Computed example of a mutant assay.
Amino acid sequence: MADTAAPMKRSSLTIGTHDGTFHCDECLATHILRNTDKYRDARVLRSRDPAKLASCDIVVDVGAELDASQSKFDHHQRGFTRVFKDGSLGHSIKLSSAGLVYEQFGRDVIGARLGSAASDANVDAVYLHVYKSFVMPIDAVDNGVMPFDSTDAPRYTDTTSVSSRVGKLNPRWNETVDATGIDERFETAVKLVGAEFDAAVSYAADAWLPARSIVEDALARRTDVHSSGQIAVLSQFCPWKDHLYTLEDEAGLSEDAKPLYVLYQDSSGGWRVQCVSATPSSFNNRKSLPEPWCGVRDAALDELSGIPGCVFVHANGFIGGNKTYDGALAMAVKAVEWS
């Protein structure tokens, strides 16, 4: 008897990325991949376990490896300097996983959207414009690049702010909208901004304000943590940056009495040591973690630092991790003493 069973449907492919806090770059990378024919039905596996990631069909923003031939797209490894390969943009902003995936798949995605071949000149023009206006700011923010240097010219322009989104609700130059239609769009804009405002008020009242007492306690106890007073430990994670600067000013602390590092427990039970930035809006740190540690992970970092339980130090040196509080504290102490 002939086998009349329907052929088994192929299971979807898997996109691997890191677990824990998610960021804009891997979210965008995932969205771009899901707009390709190959990964359209892909599921996402979020993990830092190398064995689990090895089972994925493509891995983004984790794994400390860039190899397009092996479908690996990370940017956190030491020595990574890759920028968008089209030199006409003339910038030095390193790619995040969003830029890496966009560079690899963006032309195909935009070509499908325009109904043209990826090599078409119009596709290329849109591809470059979308990178510069949308993807580049995401790369820059993820890599800690400030929009301005010492000149007046910005390194990049962020076109996804709430003001930009409101502006885009206005009629385009090549469409006709009557007065009633414009009024309707205005009401849409009011709702958009109103929702953002309400969310900001709710966050400030219910999340930001309660964090003040946690930061205030950490600042008061910092000399109990280390005699320098330059290491503060949060009793629980909270949005601490704004409060720290305000409380320092209120206490009239001198520069050498202010914390350089803040320790807190992460969602997995490990501990993070994060640098305090020079100002609330700066990507520069009062003192970064030791440069030799940057981009190094796990056992290699244990050996290099002489501290057991190390997990990582970011390539830019603004944050590191350890499996235990004692380990994270030891990292912070060595960082304070390092010159």
Rank of each mutant, 00 (worst) to 15 (best):
A42E: 08
A42T: 09
R43C: 12
R43G: 15
L45W: 05
R46D: 06
R46L: 13
R46P: 11
S47A: 12
R48S: 12
R48G: 03
K52Y: 13
A54S: 14
S55N: 02
C56Y: 08
D57F: 07
D57N: 12
D57Q: 09
V59I: 14
D61Y: 15
A64F: 13
E65F: 07
L66G: 11
D67Q: 13
A68T: 13
A68P: 10
S69H: 14
S69L: 12
Q70L: 10
Q70T: 06
S71N: 15
K72I: 00
F73A: 00
D74I: 03
H75T: 04
H76V: 08
Q77K: 09
Q77A: 05
R78V: 08
G79Y: 04
F80E: 04
R82S: 02
V83S: 07
G87M: 00
L89W: 02
H91T: 01
H91E: 04
I93K: 01
K94F: 02
K94W: 02
L95P: 00
S96P: 07
S97V: 00
G99S: 11
V101D: 10
Y102A: 04
Q104N: 10
G106P: 11
R107E: 05
D108M: 13
I110V: 15
I110P: 02
G115T: 07
S116L: 15
A117S: 14
A118Y: 03
A118C: 10
S119Y: 12
D120S: 05
A121L: 10
V123M: 06
D124T: 13
D124G: 15
A125V: 14
A125M: 12
V126Y: 11
V126C: 12
Y127M: 00
L128R: 14
H129N: 07
H129R: 15
V130N: 03
V130D: 02
K132T: 01
S133H: 14
